[in-house]
Amino acid sequence: MTLVAPPTLLPVGAGGWPCDISYDLDETLQQGVDAVMMLRLQAERMNDAFFPSTREYSRKWGFDDARLRALGEQPGAATVIMHPGPMNRGLEISSAAADSERSTVLAQVRNGVSVRMAALYLLLAGDSHQQSTPIEQKGAVL
């Protein structure tokens, strides 16, 4: 698992997570990945100095036509393209990528409904919750 984003969008403290972190989407894609999932760029992120402009974001971190083409030139790359939706077409993902044969976006969104239904059902119909004793013990310097 590799997180690829501008440093401003990666949480402080993510360095200790069990994953790799990269600021270079092309380099990561060249290493060959089974799946690449874009996440929706929220509107509020666009106006608070997280990156200079949506165009620069799109050029550096968007899955655009050029990156889709580069994937096609990789021998034997079976990489699937994912996105939880809703998509900002032309920003973090191009229409060609979103609608390509590699895309599993529609299935992913459909499955997401089932997963949410299951989570809500478990939470609302579940048994009494666990006590948080381990956290309490961990949260004090003794």
């Binding site: 948080s132 956290i135 309490e136 961990k138 949260g139 004090a140 310097v141």
Partner: peptide, 28 residues
């Protein structure tokens, strides 16, 4: 002097304070 931000994992707002609870290193 006693508590750390590990307590926030409980999401219990009794641990919400300003400035916030910090880390072991800060407490020491």
């Amino acid at each position: 002097l006693l508590l750390t931000d590990e307590l926030v994992r409980s999401y219990d707002p009794v641990y919400k304070v300003n400035p916030p609870l910090r880390t072991d290193e800060d407490v020491r």
